[in-house]
Design a binder for these strands. Structure first.
Lengths: 340, 340
DNA sequence: TAATAAAATGCAAGAGCTTACATTTCTATT
DNA sequence: AATAGAAATGTAAGCTCTTGCATTTTATTA
């Protein structure tokens, strides 16, 4: 503990095993290029010295890292955590390593993290949503780091993405809601400025309203941050400002669960008095009481596919082809025909 | 896109700005050591080239990385995700970067990940739980990488840890349960071989039983993997094998929520017929119906403190002092006196 | 204005690894 | 046993930065 022992290097191993550094290196990277006997000797030296290769040096010398970076808004949100886990599992399967960073939904931090991951040698990047400054896309291009957008899907953009169309999915759900006779709609949403998914979901409802000859302007929107309590508060605001509301859409299940709870606390019967609709279909949705009607997002599938696509791109140079996944509607117990 | 543009290097920037590489480097690392005019020039060149420093090279040359690694079992579990987020926030505050890896509760993968993170130059490591082979601890020592154990606390070990005593916490809860007249206890637990937290929780119940003159052997234990459905199945197994059971402890809230659901599906009244107790106190616990009685674990506090301690160690060389956090009991609606 | 100290910059030696190419050691064949 | 060809190993350059020391520029003082 007290002695300043420098961490062992390739050279140390080579010396201990009485071979050249090249042989040790090959032993690690191309084991079958070295004779069994030599290999054993080297491996023993490695173990003895508790040697571990220096990644930076290796990356620099070999010009590749087998590392893919992922940048998500927050790990506190189960849907990202879960998608990432699937992503990571897929990468691990192919010998790649994942580096994660989170942005707390802040654009400046996202930029910082993108630079950090690129600097760390990420061979490719996984990003959430399309919305970010052109400068960042330029940077990525200058660094020749391919980026794949997920959690969103938009045919209008040239960027490859693997995800689903938030707008379309929410529109389908809204149509159902309107078909059940609801005319006074509200939306509890996350901030839409830096979150194109949230924005798309809002647009989806508005699309359905217009299609049903309702004025999109009548959609009562309350914006809030992420959290159960936040959802509860927002619900209260909605019902105070627009008491005639019969259906409250929520930008995600966590907000919806909060709304649900507050609804009950305030004496509303769900769904008889007011319907509540979530988005994501996390476990919470099923557990909530009454069980939440929501839009199912294929998080794991998305993560897995994104991983596979990026690996294919890196290994075979195959261009990523955009994949639109299906987000299905899950009808449980918080949606019913409008009262009266 | 077609031209193989090599990513820009420090040298490129230096050339573009007509200064030496040393100046560019200082511009990045010690901005006030370089004249305003020069700095502007350099910064412009950097922006123009979309330059981003190569982390590996920097790490190698400067022998430090300002990076801390965290290794958790899985991101799919909210409690780890949340603790990590707090950890990351704390690190970010001090200019450190976090590298995460997950192990899927597999020892071999954990070892692999530890080596990977150390190889990537992690200045320190955050680990969950104490249980791992001595060889790994030896490796960490050989590499002079300090490691902090969290999510657990054990005064008997010399290793520094910031966490809570799983055994003590569960024992307190079990005591309450026994005080309510429960004599036939069961436990739905995660696999305890590689999970010392799960093991400790089990021991905690047994401690309480012994203290109450119950035979610890009568604790009916069912082991399962993580998941709501898994918890449900395990509950069913418990009640089939030991129908006289009046209180079912669960290793975590997710299992408990599953048990709760299956209990209702099977026609058990909770808590009248059977009490169900969780562990962790994640959001799910509060949302579950009836709301779950559980042990509150200070995830965020743990993450934050762990971050702070590691940074202090790295920056000031201050030895980490172990901190035992309090895990409190949260009584909600799934615990009641034993029937009869 | 000259002399001196302080600030800014440049030079060049590494940091630990990979890999093209050169050299040595085997294996198999005649 | 000699030799070609293959397999194994070694040599050394180069990957991109940081930093101690040397040098140049700028500011300060007499």
């Amino acid at each position: 503990m007290s002695k300043e022992q420098p961490t062992p290097t390739l050279q140390d191993v080579a010396t201990a095993a009485k071979v050249s550094t090249a042989t040790v290196s090959r032993c690690l990277n191309f084991p079958d290029q070295v004779k069994e006997k030599t290999r054993t000797k080297v491996l023993k030296a490695i173990k003895m010295l508790s040697y571990s290769p220096n990644f930076g040096a290796r990356a620099m010398a070999s010009r590749r890292t087998d590392t893919i970076g992922a940048i998500i808004p927050t790990m506190g949100n189960a849907i990202f955590a879960r998608g990432l886990q699937a992503f990571q599992d897929e990468l691990h399967l192919h010998g790649f390593t994942m580096l994660v960073a989170s942005t707390s939904y802040r654009e400046d931090i996202e930029e910082e993290q993108i630079r950090a991951l690129v600097g760390r040698g990420a061979d490719a990047l996984l990003l959430i949503g399309h919305a970010r400054s052109p400068e960042i896309y330029r940077f990525l291009e200058a660094q020749a780091v391919p980026a794949l957008v997920t959690w969103a899907f938009d045919t209008n953009l040239s960027r490859p993405s693997i995800g689903f169309d938030n707008q379309k999915a929410m529109c389908r759900m809204a149509k159902k809601v309107i078909d059940l006779g609801h005319r006074n709609l509200a939306l509890v949403s996350a901030e839409t400025i830096l979150n194109d998914r949230a924005k798309a979901r809002q647009l989806g409802i508005e699309d359905a309203m217009v299609a049903a000859n309702l004025c999109a302007k009548t959609l009562h929107i309350v914006k809030t941050t992420y959290g159960i309590e936040e959802g509860a508060t927002a619900f209260e605001q909605v019902m105070k400002a627009a008491p005639q509301t019969t259906a409250v859409f929520c930008g995600n299940d966590v907000l919806a669960v909060g709304a649900l709870r507050r609804a009950r606390e305030l004496g509303f019967k769900v769904p008889q008095d007011v319907s509540i609709i979530g988005f994501d279909d996390i476990e919470l949705a099923e557990i909530a009481y009454p069980a939440l009607t929501t839009v199912h997002v294929p998080h794991r599938e998305m993560g897995r596919r994104a991983g596979a696509a990026l690996i294919k791109l890196l290994n075979e140079g195959t261009q990523i082809e955009a994949v639109e996944l299906e987000a299905s509607l899950v009808f449980r117990d918080t949606l019913a025909p409008a009262r009266n």
